[in-house]
Every structure is written in C-alpha cells, then in structure tokens.
C-alpha cells in the first residue's frame, strides 16, 4: 500500500479512508455474493443418483483417491469373541421382509450368462470356516462389536474355481426378491475379513439378520453387508446399488 507519495495529494485522510473502505467492502460483498451464488447453484444442481452431480463427482474422486491407497492387507481391528455384543442390532428389512423358502433356497452364482451355480447352505458350510469379530459400522453413525461366522469370500472363490470371475472389477449381490442389491469392488470382496456369513454369535443367522446367508464385509459400511443373498454375479461395470441410487457414496469404504 502506498504511503509517502499519495499523502500529499488533495485527498484528506478521511477521504482516503472512505474511498478505500468503500472499495474494499464492495469487493468483499461481491466475493461473498459470488460464493453464495455458487453455493446455491451447487445446492440446486441437477442430481445424479439422488445427489448433486458435482458432489457425485466429488464422491467418485474421493473413491479414486482412497481406493488407490486401499490395501487388502489392511485389516479392520480384531476383537475377542467375549467383546462381541450378545444382542446384535437389526437395522432395516429391505429384501428380507417377506418369508424365505428355506428348503428351496439356493445361492445362485452367475459365472456366465446361462452358466449359473446353484449352491445350498450345506455346500457353503462344507468350506473352511472363518470367524470375524469386528466393529460393525452403520452409515448412520453407530457401531457395534459383533461376532460372525462363515466362509471367507476368497476361500469360496478358490473352492469353486472362480478365477476368471475374480478378475472382474466388481461383484454384485441381490436378495432373492431383488428388493435389495449392492455392488462392491473386487479388492474389498477379496479382503480376508470378507465372509459369506451363516452364523452370528456361534448360532445360525436369525431371519432378520439374513438367514440363510449374508455378506459380512468389515471394510465397508453396513449398507453393503447384504442380508439373505439370492444371487451373486461379477461384472466390469458397476452393478446397481440400492443406496448409491439414493444419494449415497457407491464405494462406502472404511
């Protein structure tokens, strides 16, 4: 800012102060106004899958950044079985509201169009068993240490020789009634704590927890832990995802 040369000009100090104050405040309010206009434009922007398109882009950028740092070696904190909650919280019944045909239930594993494995619960239980005790995190903000038993997804892939499928970028899961569905990146599916789960606290899953078989995937929010698996399939494009269509982050990784 100028001092010496302009001091001698005709403008008095008061005039200078007034002039500079006015100028600064005009710029100040212009910038504030511009910020407000930008924000309102963002707020009322066209939505893409339930959320403003720019914010959707932001979610995808965050996903790119954080999934590139994702390591399958990074493990969700393990807990002792004794630390697990005896009463496991139930949050929502999308896809599990109607009764399930427990006799005829099969997990359909779509390898190729027209080539579908139909697996019974016993087929799954025959595979090596894994226990996972971790802090389950709901996207709503609550968490609970819970104890689950089942088959490691990576063990399942090996046992059924799904090597070609494993190379796809995403796995998709649906409930038998197709009311609930999720898509998950393969790196997260192959993380060693991801299990096809048939037990909670050492007992078979109750219906509201997804009997006969559900997904437990500790590197994701609860919205991805689909209950009552009907169909499992693989894809290089993003499988549809119930909550991602309703404004939530597709990745939902922790």
């Amino acid at each position: 800012m100028s001092r010496k040369p302009k001091q001698k000009k005709v403008l008095s100090i008061e005039q200078q102060v007034r002039r500079r104050t006015l100028r600064a405040f005009v710029i100040f309010f212009a910038l504030l106004g511009a910020g407000w206009v930008l924000f309102m434009r963002l707020y009322h922007e066209q939505r893409e899958d339930g959320v403003q398109a720019t914010l959707r882009k932001g979610l995808r950028l965050n996903e790119r950044l954080f999934s590139s740092t994702f390591s399958t070696r990074r493990i969700a904190k393990k807990y002792a079985v004794s630390e697990a909650a005896p009463r496991v919280r139930v949050n929502g019944d999308l896809g599990t509201a109607k009764p399930v045909d427990t006799v005829n239930w099969r997990m359909k594993v779509v390898r190729m169009p027209g080539d579908t494995l139909q697996l019974t619960l016993d087929d799954i239980k025959r595979l090596p068993r894994t226990d996972v005790v971790f802090d389950f995190k709901c996207i709503e903000g609550w968490d609970q240490v819970t104890h689950w038993g089942g088959v490691r997804f990576s063990d399942f892939i090996k046992a059924y020789h799904l090597d070609a499928e494993m190379l796809k970028q995403y796995a998709g899961l649906q409930t038998p009634d197709k009311q609930y569905y999720v898509g998950i990146d393969m790196a997260s599916m192959l993380q060693p704590q991801t299990i096809l789960c048939y037990e909670v606290n050492g007992r078979p899953l109750p219906l509201e927890q997804g009997y006969p078989l559900r997904l437990i995937i500790p590197v994701k929010y609860g919205i991805k832990h689909l209950k009552r698996i009907g169909t499992l399939y693989f894809s290089n494009t993003r499988p549809p995802d119930y909550w991602a269509e309703r404004g939530y982050d597709y990745y939902a990784g922790l």
């Binding site: 904190k77 968490d143 990784g253 922790l254």
Partner: peptide, 20 residues
C-alpha cells in the same frame, strides 16, 4: 471417515466411537 485405512489414527483417538 476411513477407520480401517487409518486404523492407527483411529486408535490414537481412542477408537471409532471416541473419535466421533
């Protein structure tokens, strides 16, 4: 935001619930 990726940071805060 990323309690598994930053599990050491989360532990530093005293856990997930404490961090919140």
């Amino acid at each position: 935001y990323k309690p598994v990726q930053f599990n050491w940071l989360c532990a530093l805060c005293g856990g997930y619930a404490a961090a919140r």
